[in-house]
Nucleic acid binder design. Structure first.
Length: 574
RNA sequence: CGGAGAGUAGCGCAGCCUGGUUAGCGCGCAGCGUUCGGGACGCUGAGGUCGCCGGUUCGAAUCCGGCCUCUCCGACCA
């Protein structure tokens, strides 16, 4: 008797909407008894939710194994000293959970595992013969998120699959990277997710090439730019778009005009009667090489991720202190400009061809009009640092881009040698020469997938599980468990379905039929079997498919029911 | 961290402004009975340090101060 009886199970459903949850997946995970909150961003997985989580985990494991990745287990508790060697004790900063042992030694609850795995590689990999090698694990990760949100979507403790690959050559890395890309696509497809792989920023992980896998959802926290013409897809923060056309106008001489109290683009438009595209905004940054001025056209937004990526300087930060800005430029915010600044100037491409631009005068209460890049001020570097917008021309083919929202369920990185160099992970190549190991790393948010799946697969009544991660495939509602005839039939059918390899939840609770039907919809099991008097009079049981409400009746015999249920489930496998 | 809001029974909430017997309502929960095909009904009952600490007061869920926690928006983020 391997089927599960609801009366012997812990599956507490809620009729009412929880006040704490904002988005459908979070509400449904609470209402359908998958998770309970312990603290902000920290959740318990109840048996029903854990069952689904394990299904996702199993798919991830199968796809990793299929490309030859080796499963292992790394410690969650990691010594401070190791993190200091890569500089990430500071770089990760307050987002790491840090603790101290009784001797005063510092530890982190691992937010990720590059440090520890690279040290392992440094010890165990010595020769080019030992590679390529890919190791992975599935385990809890800890990040002290500024703002945990949306249940398991942005939690402080969450389940993640992380993999790390080690190579003697870039070609080998690229091969594994492609394998991972394929394995990820298979994984998310099997989970029933509609997703896109997009070019991604690399952030604190480092490296150059990276893709994020985004489950498409309006409630997602990330934005993605998509080109339906050429297939270009990128995280909005790095999405490349062609620079907008320059504003109309003629070149004219530079002129300093008094603009008392006029600071913002809107105010300048009003005061000078110009268009936003004729205005150049100036931002100040400081990094390890000192101060830097950054120019963006007035009708564009600065995309800081692009700037950071181009600068390759993790210490680069925006100057937001008025005193500091004034020391650098001589003027307060609102009057900063590139003319006469003694620091490097970087500009968005859209600044290059403005015939007569308005820029700050570097003097309180003054702006220049008629400024021309190259003529009146030097630009050391033109680059794409404006924020991509809906309808902007695709940087690859020029067609208009669409902006959509997504949930990041996975990301893959070509890391290169950042960690191997920092931690001395080297190998001897065929020529006997010592070289740093080339690495890749690959993450999947396992618990987040669960949220993303529900976000994509639900209706007003509840969850609609994709077959492969459904906690059970069949729920049997016995309308009158106190009537022996019905209960015995339900038990026989449950056993038969179980023997046929299906996972069965038997709703034997003493509840009204209405409640059982509603709960069945809420918990989203693909097929509901109803054992009740109405059909039983005809010697039948009824079935209803969750996805589309398709109904069927079968003779109340084991083989007929098994066959009928299988038939209903077959349509799920598309 | 900035802005906003909220903490009263397992869940959802009222009461607070205007301090005053045993702190309410709906759902849920327990017992009994009646029901039994799309969240039934009746009766009885259990369940609350009113987030915490301090103050004001004869008297504090209610007024004042501090703290904590949670949620939302923003900044941030593999």
């Amino acid at each position: 008797m391997a089927y599960v009886r609801w009366t012997r199970y812990l599956l507490p459903t809620w009729k009412e909407e929880p006040a704490e949850a904002e988005i459908p997946s979070h509400r449904l995970m609470l209402r359908a008894g998958l998770i309970r909150r312990v603290a902000s961003g920290i959740y318990e997985f109840l048996p029903f939710g854990y069952r689904a989580l394990r299904k996702v985990e199993r798919i991830v494991r199968e796809e990793m194994d299929a490309i030859g990745a080796l499963e292992m287990k790394l410690p969650v508790l990691q010594p401070e000293e190791l993190w200091r060697r890569t500089g990430r004790w500071e770089d990760f900063g307050p987002e790491m959970f840090k603790l101290t042992d009784r001797k005063g030694q510092g530890f982190a609850l691992g937010p990720t595992h590059e440090e520890i795995i690279t040290e392992l590689a440094a010890r165990e990999i010595r020769s080019w013969r030992d590679m390529p090698l890919t190791l992975y694990q599935i385990g809890e990760k800890y990040r002290d998120e500024i703002r945990p949100r949306f249940g398991v979507m942005r939690a402080r403790e969450f389940l993640m699959k992380d993999a790390y690959s080690f190579h003697g050559s870039w070609d080998s890395l690229e091969e594994t990277y492609r394998d991972m890309y394929t394995a990820y696509s298979r994984t998310f497809t099997r989970c029933g997710l509609v997703f896109v792989a997009v070019e991604a920023p690399t952030g604190v992980m480092g490296g150059d090439v990276s893709h994020e896998f985004m489950a498409v959802a309006d409630t997602g926290e990330d934005e993605i730019a998509l080109c339906s013409a050429c297939g270009y897809a990128a995280n909005r923060q790095v999405a490349h778009t062609e620079p907008p056309d320059p504003p109309p106008g003629e070149e004219r001489p530079l002129e300093l005009v008094a603009t008392p109290g006029v600071r913002t683009v809107e105010e300048l438009v009003e005061f000078l009667g110009v268009s936003p595209a004729q205005i150049v905004k100036t931002f100040l940054y400081v990094g390890r090489d000192g101060a830097l001025a950054v120019l963006v056209r007035g009708d564009q937004e600065l995309e800081e991720t692009k700037l950071l990526q181009a600068a390759g300087d993790p210490t680069l930060r925006r100057v937001d202190d008025p005193g500091e800005a004034e020391r650098i430029s001589g003027a307060p915010f609102g009057f900063l400009g590139p003319i006469g600044l003694g620091i490097p100037v970087w500009a968005d491409e859209s600044v290059r061809d403005i015939p007569a631009a308005v820029v700050g005068g570097n003097r309180e209460g003054y702006h220049y009009v008629g400024a021309r890049a190259g003529r009146d001020f030097r630009v050391d570097r033109y680059l794409d640092i404006h924020r991509a917008r809906e309808g902007d021309p695709c940087g690859r083919c020029g067609s208009p881009l669409r902006i959509r929202r997504g949930i990041e369920v996975g990301q893959i990185f070509q890391l290169g040698t950042k960690y191997s160099e920092a931690l001395g992970a080297t190998f001897l190549d065929r020529d006997g020469e010592e070289r740093p190991i080339i690495m890749g790393c690959y993450g999947i948010g396992v618990s987040r997938i669960l949220g993303a799946v529900i976000e994509q697969h639900h209706d007003e009544a509840g969850i609609i599980w994709p077959l492969e991660i459904a906690p059970f495939q069949v729920v049997i509602a016995v309308l009158r468990p106190d009537v022996p005839e019905q209960m015995e039939l339900a038990e026989r059918l449950a056993s038969a379905l179980d023997r046929a390899g299906l996972e069965v939840l038997l709703d034997d609770r003493d509840r009204s039929p209405g409640e059982k039907f509603h709960d069945a919809k809420l918990i989203g099991i693909p097929v509901l079997l109803v054992v009740g008097p109405r059909a039983l009079q005809r010697g039948e049981v009824e079935a209803e498919r969750r996805r589309d409400g398709a109904k069927a009746s079968f003779p109340a015999a084991e083989d007929a029911v098994v066959r009928g249920v299988r038939e209903l489930l077959r349509a799920e496998l598309i």
